[in-house]
Design a binder for these strands. Structure first.
Lengths: 225, 225
DNA sequence: CGAATAGTATGACAAATATCATATTTTACT
DNA sequence: AGTAAAATATGATATTTGTCATACTATTCG
């Protein structure tokens, strides 16, 4: 069993407030495992008995709509926690979490987290801040979905993917999503997403080579948001 | 200065966790005032120095989009708190709050709330739950905006207005919003909203008499969601 | 390696929604 | 009460976006 004390990713989440003793306790009760790309961590409606700490990789939080499309609400990456909302609300999840690339995650049981809430005020505060950050993002997301065009949302999403996940040396986005997943993020039909990507490509704003997407003229994308 | 101890609405929010001493302290430092319909409590970008407790009335939380339209993210009513997100995140607000009907609100300074966070764990937990509830609603809202038609969102919104705010004896919704505000909630153009309301009216699912809206056939509205 | 499958691309068309114009009704105000 | 202003209503039209069909390309798997 690896030690949480030595795990650097805890510094990126509410867990950074935990002291040495708490970290040892957490290491004792956590279970860590690997999630392959495409595998599900939890499904809409599941009752979670704890939260997940993402040691490596990225997953998507999404909700299946009646029309059969998967709306992606958030991408969660290394260092972030997963499942807090459900745990705090004491409800089953409203979203499912699926790995977008291979992941390493640790599961921390509910009882342990509740103890932290009770004994470590800074941990509670951190967690609150993190949820508040999500809320702000979601509110902004609503406004975008309601008031911006698909084209604007695509431009914005591409820019955000670049700033959140970075690029390889060749300039292409490190995070590789399918066209369907990008469509699910911006809330449009897959064909519309593909069409607009082609258009951006023809305009010379981005370049497409298979799944690799590179932003060529960031300014042009920013201008249209 | 009225006593928070005797104010019933505190039971409906995170404030219910406060003990007698804390309530007395809060009563001491709070300021209560009246907000007339249409008046602004705070504006996008304002730095809040505390939170608001709504003693009576309803306000809308909205964000102005570049296209000049106001997207309504949430309606906040009697008993709820306002401004927590901004206070916890220590950021300026991303939303503005405007009274939809005459209101009575109390302002509680930041320092006091922070003290409660530090000394009253149940208060923190309650606050967290409330923010998590907002997050769930926002996530659901995103999926609706992205995946449902304007017609479906209008039907859903009407049903939600009825269940959240109730009806008068004549069956009309207690909360009275302008067509523009309803359009701002469902994320569409005012004309589209008016047109669909007319259509629902002609179908006999709702009835319109000026600003008064009554749901006649709830089942039909539910069926189309 | 080659077939099967999933993913990507594009055209043609349909449906949903926004925009603009204008009429009508309601509300606010002196 | 009477007028100005705002809100509501509706038609005509343009634009955006979705859907369906089909082709092409990449990937997987025996």
């Amino acid at each position: 069993m690896s030690k949480c004390e030595q795990c650097i990713v805890r510094e990126f989440s509410a867990l950074k407030a935990l002291n040495k003793d708490e970290l040892i306790r957490m290491a004792d009760c956590k279970t860590s495992y690997v999630v392959k790309k495409g595998e599900t961590i939890f499904d809409e409606g599941d009752l979670l008995n704890g939260i997940y700490c993402i040691k490596d990789g990225i997953c998507k939080l999404s909700k299946l709509s009646d029309n059969g499309k998967d709306q992606i609400v958030k991408l969660v990456k290394k260092g972030e926690l997963l499942g807090q909302r459900s745990l705090i609300s004491e409800e089953s999840t409203n979203l499912s979490a699926v790995a977008v690339e291979d992941m390493q995650v640790c599961f921390i049981p509910k009882q342990e987290i509740l103890k932290f809430f009770n004994e470590n005020n800074q941990f509670s505060l951190n967690m609150m801040k993190s949820v508040c950050g999500d809320l702000k993002d979601a509110d902004d997301g609503m406004v975008n979905l309601a008031q911006k065009t698909v084209k604007q949302r695509l431009a914005e999403t591409l820019l955000k993917l670049e700033s959140d996940f970075g690029t390889f040396e060749d300039g292409s986005l490190k995070i590789q999503l399918s066209r369907e997943e990008i469509a699910g993020m911006i809330g449009t039909a897959t064909e519309s997403c593909i069409r607009l990507l082609s258009e951006f490509n023809k305009e010379g704003w981005i370049s497409l080579q298979g799944k690799k997407i590179s932003i060529i003229h960031k300014k042009e994308l920013q201008r249209m948001i």
